[in-house]
Simulated scan of single mutants.
Amino acid sequence: MTLANEIILPSRAGWRPRFGLHRVLFHVAAVLVALLFLAPIAVVVLASFRPSSEAGLPPLPPWPTGGFSLDSYARLEAFGAGILHHAGNSLFVALGTAAITVVVSLLAGYGFSRFHFPLKGTLFVLILATMMIPFQSILTPLFLILARLGLQNTLTGLILIYVTLQLPFSVFMMRNAFDTVPKEIEEAARLDGATGLRLLAHIMSPIVFPGMVSVGLFAFLNAWNEFLAALVLLTDQDKFTLPVLMTAVRSGHYGSVDWGAVQAGVTVMMIPCLLLFLLLQRYYIRGLTAGSVK
């Protein structure tokens, strides 16, 4: 029997195309939804590169004819201490908030997941219950506490406020991440001599790293985009973060709005968020889904 006779070809009735109509419709719908979400971002970015006289025009016919211009970024740099200075303030606050939140929530999540102590469940519920308190209702007490500590109108005080607001959700995330780790791994590490912080740093932390990334990314984005606390707690213009700076730019003189500078500032604010999410999206998605299936 030849090789050609051994090959059994599939029947025409049982053959199906690799890409059916439903898959084509799915991809077309996905592209349309992506364009719907990307359209506002594209409008903002393109408007930031228009001349000031055309920056506020809608992206509809008749199309602006002023061409490519960096005047909006130049005016934004000339406002206050400069866009780079205020971006540095926001970056310092966001990175500080993310770092402290990750460290504290890592320790707290490990404690709630692995240790037994009196009123453990009650304390955990109380921590989660703080998420139901509106931030606006405790803004005045927080302002008085920072003033008593000498941290009012400082970026360090603003970081502490953001960490306080972010910790309940972060502790909840990290406890769930540690709950997904089999206890046999920890017991084997203890038999090998790893205890205490060494066990947490060298054995447990690499396993729950996706959860740490999710917590840090949430803390960074919330601190980067937060407006109300920075507006109330910061009175020195040189210490303004980018959201507060955008409000000052938008106010303008005599009620006028420099739409070009506003769009340029929004474009600058989007860059770190997009880069972080694109770089860490794999860990972010794994961290969010940790504990969903056991």
Rank of each mutant, 00 (worst) to 15 (best):
residue 128 L to A: 03
residue 192 D to T: 03
residue 230 A to Q: 00
residue 44 V to S: 15
residue 148 R to V: 11
residue 136 Q to R: 12
residue 10 P to K: 05
residue 46 L to Y: 13
residue 175 R to D: 04
residue 50 R to H: 10
residue 286 R to D: 04
residue 169 F to L: 03
residue 64 P to G: 12
residue 166 Q to F: 04
residue 88 G to I: 04
residue 87 A to R: 01
residue 163 V to S: 07
residue 117 F to I: 09
residue 246 M to L: 14
residue 268 V to T: 09
residue 33 V to N: 06
residue 81 A to P: 00
residue 104 V to T: 05
residue 19 F to I: 12
residue 224 W to H: 02
residue 183 K to M: 04
residue 28 V to F: 06
residue 229 A to E: 06
residue 243 P to Y: 11
residue 251 S to N: 12
residue 6 E to D: 07
residue 274 L to P: 03
residue 127 I to D: 00
residue 43 V to M: 13
residue 255 G to E: 13
residue 241 T to W: 04
residue 255 G to T: 15
residue 202 H to F: 10
residue 33 V to H: 03
residue 3 L to I: 04
residue 280 L to S: 14
residue 175 R to Q: 10
residue 72 S to W: 14
residue 171 V to D: 01
residue 152 Q to F: 15
residue 260 G to F: 09
residue 273 C to Q: 06
residue 34 A to M: 00
residue 79 F to R: 14
residue 11 S to Y: 10
residue 49 F to G: 15
residue 193 G to V: 04
residue 8 I to N: 05
residue 98 A to H: 02
residue 40 P to I: 04
residue 74 A to M: 07
residue 280 L to G: 10
residue 71 D to V: 14
residue 69 S to K: 10
residue 282 R to Y: 07
residue 38 L to K: 00
residue 226 E to G: 07
residue 60 L to G: 15
residue 142 L to Y: 08
residue 208 V to F: 05
residue 282 R to I: 09
residue 194 A to S: 05
residue 237 Q to I: 09
residue 246 M to I: 15
residue 116 H to E: 15
residue 151 L to N: 02
